[in-house]
Design a protein around this nucleic acid. Sequence first.
DNA 1: TTGTTGATTTCGCAA
DNA 2: TTGCGAAGTCAACAA
Lengths: 210, 210
Amino acid sequence: MDYAGRLTAHLPSALRLLIVKADGSVLVHSDGGSYKPLNWMSPPCRLAEEPGRWVVTGKSGETLTIFIEEVLSDSSFALGTDPGLVKDGVEAHLQDLLAAQTQLLGDGWRLVRREYPTPIGPVDLMCRDASGTSVAIEVKRRGEIDGVEQLTRYLELLNRDQLIAPVLGVFAAQEIRPQARVLAEDRGIRCVVLDYDTMRGADDGALRLF
Amino acid sequence: MDYAGRLTAHLPSALRLLIVKADGSVLVHSDGGSYKPLNWMSPPCRLAEEPGRWVVTGKSGETLTIFIEEVLSDSSFALGTDPGLVKDGVEAHLQDLLAAQTQLLGDGWRLVRREYPTPIGPVDLMCRDASGTSVAIEVKRRGEIDGVEQLTRYLELLNRDQLIAPVLGVFAAQEIRPQARVLAEDRGIRCVVLDYDTMRGADDGALRLF
DNA sequence: TTGTTGATTTCGCAA
DNA sequence: TTGCGAAGTCAACAA
């Protein structure tokens, strides 16, 4: 099998699973690894079947050529259209929960607004602490270095606005990588690790009181 | 089908393709979309087959429960171990090419060294321009905002070293996102768009002269 | 083993 | 349509 597109790749001869979907896309799987195929062609594409050879051409001209030496099994089924997948919360939910539980950040803290607008994008949560000082909060599932950079940019801008400056920063995440923590604290940004299960539990508990 | 792990997801009843690999991992594909399954379980995991129900349990306790109403086809094959995939250059190759063609950055530029070390990681290329001023170059396939941040951190550190300061910055990529360009230029970092094919061609051309 | 970065990423949302 | 951030990301590589 040979792929030629943004990169070129070659796959030696072996026994594999070939899947052709209704939209013409092709997947080549081995008997292990993760869900990612060894090689594939994403739709839209066109499959040309020649004797002993399949040539799949993508819309940008990239090609996947499959040389077929032997066929152990060949079946085809019409699956029809698929009803959608339903997913439940991740990061958005963390922001919901924290917005409703600002006391986790400190006594007397209150929410000013969510998605507080700045010229370079919205800050997740804007709060005031017990003394009335503004605090910009960035919420992440996993706190990494780029999240700290993002919050830093917000703080830089916000602190130019004399109406709300000074603005402090809080970096809140389920998990904060050591490098991100070091960078944040070096910049005077407080790090808060959020316990998703506890926060969800507190939320349930509050609901159960009524 | 129901998944319960970091998130919960539910998939309504429909005709689908189920794949079980040799390592026990499970993939659930619909008849379209890309190579990503609707739902899956990565190895290591354990598959328990009960009548009308499969329960797949991952090592962190996440579960994928598949309710089977009807089987249209059921086949099994041993594929054996797989020889590896061979890929050819992407970003490393870009760095190679630019290292050999510093004249693309300006007349009289010369390479000091590749992977120039700093306390927070190596700078892709360190050059001197025609006037002898040091220039740190970050090479990316796609230039995004975090690449600019990375280069900014390098420049901050390098400019503290009186032996080589001042150090200028160049952000070189096949494609530079507008936001990354704005941020870079705001920080005095020059942006250079690299034409991979031309650079490769120039390289070939040089080889053909001999 | 752990962390970091790139990807033929894919996917979803919003402008 | 396009751009951008997140992903149950995956996967390769370095520390």
